[in-house]
């Protein structure tokens, strides 16, 4: 079984003719992902990266069979792009776009919930099932197939940690970024639920950061459900001062809430293996034999 994306994925790229959209369509195709159509308003009936381009998602689906989408459209249009994909029944909807207003995200997430669609992001590097497919902007070569599920609020830090795992011979089942914004689709708790059911995932790595309560919520869920698989975590931003936004819209300590120390402490309390520095993660996982069983 592959989570969210895999060989079965037939994806549309919304915003395929922009710089980022075109560049990453090429890399996704090179990785072996089935990108079957692109959408850019006004560019219908053209071709980008060898992929046919349409003006709307609905018109693409009249000609082509697709089941997922990845969105690169600029922030002011991202909410509607997401709704267009949901209306067409595409699932999952991966939103790479950053700097989307929180109100737009809030409305989009409510729409997705009503229609039973899964949204990854916004402000995410995307999702990859190593060796099968990627819907995202991550460099494919740092990942390797295996049994560890990785969920993260960051992009580059995920690549850093995936490369440590890969170098240590620990492959990954699925890696995904939940997004660096205050309001996102999938939460850590949602991803933990998916990894719990996923037979190819034996252990989970969570990569958190300052701001919000996604890590605390995950810790509470792990404790309440006696989570059956080992979980290891790293939380970025111990050195971050309060009240300052650290690059990501969601990475801000407000008052005394959302500090890295509080999140790490909560994780430790519920039995999550907490890494002081990212490079410790492989060793923490190697202590858990289950993580090393390859599928």
């Amino acid at each position: 079984m592959t989570l969210l994306v895999g060989k079965h994925t037939r994806a549309i790229v919304q915003g395929i003719t922009g710089n980022q959209g075109a560049f990453h369509t090429r890399l996704m195709l090179d990785y072996g992902t089935q990108i079957v159509a692109g959408v850019t308003p006004g560019k219908g009936a053209t071709v980008s990266q060898g992929v046919p381009v349409f003006d709307t998602v609905a018109s693409a689906l009249e000609k082509i069979d697709a089941n997922a989408t990845i969105i690169f459209v600029p922030a002011p249009f991202a909410k509607e792009a997401g709704m267009e994909a949901i209306d067409a029944g595409l699932n999952p909807v991966v939103i790479i776009t950053e700097m989307i207003p929180a109100r737009d995200s809030m409305i989009l997430m409510a729409y997705a919930k009503e229609h039973g669609a899964t949204i990854v992001g916004p402000n995410t590097p995307g999702v990859i099932t190593p060796g099968e497919a990627k819907l995202g902007i991550m460099p494919g070569d740092v990942f390797s197939p295996g049994g560890v599920g990785v969920a993260s609020r960051s992009g580059t830090l995920t690549y850093e940690i995936a490369s440590y795992l890969t170098h240590a011979g620990i492959g990954q089942s699925t890696c995904l970024g939940i997004g660096g914004d205050p309001v996102t689709g999938l939460s850590f708790v949602d991803v933990l639920k998916m990894f719990r059911e996923d037979k190819s995932t034996n252990a989970v790595v969570l990569i958190g950061e300052i701001g919000g309560s996604a890590e605390e919520d995950a810790a509470n869920y792990i404790a309440e459900t006696h989570y059956p698989k080992p979980v290891a975590a790293y939380v970025a931003g111990r050195a971050a001062p309060p009240g300052k936004r650290m690059g990501h819209a969601g990475a801000i300590i407000t008052g005394t809430e959302g500090t890295a120390d509080a999140k790490m402490k909560r994780f430790s309390e519920v039995g999550v293996l907490v890494a002081e520095v990212p490079s410790e993660l492989p060793r923490l996982l190697q202590q858990q034999k289950a993580a090393l069983v390859q599928h």
Partner: peptide, 12 residues
């Protein structure tokens, strides 16, 4: 490059 990586760099 990347907010998470830079945060982790400060921490390290």
């Amino acid at each position: 490059n990347g907010a998470g990586l830079v945060m982790a760099t400060l921490d390290m």
